[in-house]
Design a protein around this nucleic acid. Sequence first.
DNA 1: AGGCAAGAAATTTGATCAAATTCACGAATG
DNA 2: CATTCGTGAATTTGATCAAATTTCTTGCCT
Lengths: 223, 223
Amino acid sequence: MAGTADDTLRKIPSHELTYGRLRDMILFGLLEPGQPVTIQGLIRDLDSGMTPVREAIRRLTAEGALLPQGNRRVAVPQMDGSALEQVAFARLTLEPKLAELALRNLTPALIDQLDEIDSAVDHAIRAGDLPGYLRSNHAFHFALYEAADAPILLDMARSLWLRFGPSLRVVMQRGGAANLPDRHEEALAAMRAGDTAALALAIQNDIQQGIDQIRLAQAQGAV
Amino acid sequence: MAGTADDTLRKIPSHELTYGRLRDMILFGLLEPGQPVTIQGLIRDLDSGMTPVREAIRRLTAEGALLPQGNRRVAVPQMDGSALEQVAFARLTLEPKLAELALRNLTPALIDQLDEIDSAVDHAIRAGDLPGYLRSNHAFHFALYEAADAPILLDMARSLWLRFGPSLRVVMQRGGAANLPDRHEEALAAMRAGDTAALALAIQNDIQQGIDQIRLAQAQGAV
DNA sequence: AGGCAAGAAATTTGATCAAATTCACGAATG
DNA sequence: CATTCGTGAATTTGATCAAATTTCTTGCCT
């Protein structure tokens, strides 16, 4: 048995799979805010059992991705102005810090990999492929943040993106693939130059641009 | 129907109770870092069923209070130097902000209430009552933070205190109730004066003092 | 007589428990 | 030293109970 590459080949337990699927649905704006999330419904939709679904819901509730209604149900939270402010503050503090920490550990190979992901982002923007953009944009940020080797801050960032996810729906509905945030070129240049301050600024701008998009959409009708 | 005071009288579900009990055990340093937390053990210790225990564990894992080992077990995480740095950075950013936000909503009655809690803190310190100190100190901070009306930042602060909890054990073992962090007088004065900057600074100092305690204990033997 | 509202039955959904299955670890054995 | 087997815990399923929402009925008022 010279090949137990256990890291990836180990059988993933059902509750992990279920969690991952539900998380991605929230993360990429597939669930409407306010829409109730029922256990029975998820058992059908995700083709899973009761216990795995319950645990996925509990985890995501603890992460702020779901909000308990008074009556033992949960729903995707609505993002109001106050919530957006809080998320903005936390993201603008945490993520530039993660980028700074990551810079110390970046290898040329990793930078090339990030460059590749950014190409996918560009391609998705030009093609008007919103879901593709969301996925590759997420991949870019977290490939960078994971290099920071700071699991606690990383968890916090993940939680914030989960809270942010449902809001992306408004952007998607407004269609325009134009002026989607993409300061990744600046970020990549800063990485290659080893310029900490420039990298933090690029990430900060990228985040700010995304926040502004949501704020704009919020100010107009689409809650 | 003049009597359904439902807000407080509603029966609390078992999984909530179980979660609360386990959370407090971690929060106040009753569980040793590295110590495995088993489902069966908690069913016995907390006198609960399997489902509630599972859900409590999942929630606390999502909050960073428990760490999954590779083998479908969880344990109270060890706090190394890197983890302490991350928690320190996040706490020093978030909690002064929460205090600032709270200041706008503080009523004289609430300040008096905080003053009362602080008396309990002082009393516990003078009496060398560590568990009492931990509980009232926690109560002081979160009574303040809750006034901020910022549930997202509040959740993040809660999670950070949970990650911090196990480290308190080292402080407790070193016995000295002296130089425990208590900059609450400064904070209360700032609240009464409505001085935002002074309040943020007082909270920041209070946190820094606590972090330094742990860092000191870490530098010496007691992991 | 028609419409509205309060209340009761029925259905849907969540919470909890108990049993069966799968998996990881350690001891015993070759 | 490698392999097998046993033990105990975690995972998962199914069943049962309790709560809440919906629907339907019934009685009252206009």
